[in-house]
């Protein structure tokens, strides 16, 4: 193993971490406000991917420029995020006073439904639309050739989303209202925050992030039924390891898991799939509430 293999693993890992972060961010963001772990988030990832791929094919019939390809990714993710995010929110709204476990199961039911809807729309044949990746060209680093798409596009989108979201939560009115609802729903409502509207807004943003993760992943991997199921457990692992509702924590953990995973692809291939879970167990063994959660004082 040389420096080039290490570099390869590192870049792969960062790019994968970017995708993982986007999906996990959506999940943890929704959890923060609505207090539901959304199992159907995996479907959003899958739908985002398929929808971006379809858009890509549709747009490519014209000129096939890089702008159009990127537009296809964004549009694909956006449409899915808005429609499914809003739909899921409406569904969960009917169960809003119920036990969190019940709400989680409702999203599980929604996940089952969406899995089949996805097969109805896109079939079971693998989908692979990677035009955008080749349009962006490649870069040679230390004699290793990297696709620009993975080298800088995915990581910068992920980082951009992170910075934007942090800024939004801190400085915009709506962002602050979201923080308020996350912190204490009752008090926020008493102060005049429309918790219902905040919930739908959060759901759409969170869902779009999941779909964006899928859309960005679609050029790098072939889409088959079941991608959503695999992704949701991975992002669960990220969210639980970081601590629920921790945005910066999710970024760091996604990097940890992404890099560890790709290192194991190159050096310990048998461990590739189990790596995220091993990290999660190790972290929770030492910090039972997640890496970045500040322990709450018990009130008695």
């Amino acid at each position: 193993m040389g420096v080039d293999t290490l570099l390869l693993a590192l870049i792969d890992g960062v790019s994968y971490a970017g995708l993982l972060f986007l999906v996990a961010l959506g999940l943890t963001f929704i959890f923060g406000v609505v207090r539901v772990l959304n199992v159907a988030h995996g479907s959003l990832y899958a739908f985002g991917g398929y929808s971006a791929a379809s858009m890509g094919i549709w747009f490519a019939q014209g000129a096939g420029s890089i702008t159009l390809s990127i537009l296809a990714l964004i549009l694909g993710a956006g449409i899915v995020g808005v429609i499914l995010g809003y739909g899921l929110m409406l569904l969960l709204h009917r169960f809003r006073d119920r036990d969190p476990i019940i709400q989680l199961l409702v999203t599980f039911g929604a996940f089952m439904v969406l899995e089949d809807v996805q097969v109805m729309i896109w079939g079971t044949q693998p989908y692979f639309v990677s035009d955008v990746m080749f349009q962006m060209g490649d870069t040679s680093l230390l004699g290793v050739v990297f696709m620009n798409y993975q080298l800088w596009f995915i990581p910068s989108v992920a980082l951009g989303v992170y910075v934007l979201l942090r800024w939004f939560l801190k400085h915009s009115l709506k962002g602050r209202q979201i923080i308020a609802v996350t912190h204490d729903r009752e008090v926020a409502t008493a102060l005049g925050v429309n918790a219902g509207r905040i919930a739908s807004f959060t759901f759409i943003i969170g869902a779009s992030l999941g779909a964006l993760g899928g859309a960005l992943a679609s050029p790098t991997t072939s889409l088959v039924p079941g991608v959503g199921a695999d992704m949701i457990v991975l992002s669960f692992a990220v969210v639980a390891t970081a601590g629920l509702g921790q945005i910066s924590g999710a970024l760091i953990v996604a990097l940890m898991i992404g890099i560890a995973r790709s290192l194991s692809v190159y050096f310990l291939p048998q461990f590739e799939v189990v790596m995220p879970y091993l990290i999660m167990m190790a972290v929770l063994l030492i910090r039972p509430q997640g890496l970045f959660t500040v322990a709450e004082a018990r009130r008695i």
Binding site: V106, M112, D116, V117
Partner: peptide, 8 residues
Amino acid sequence: LVLGVTLI
């Protein structure tokens, strides 16, 4: 799909 709807 049917199962999911029934369960919900």
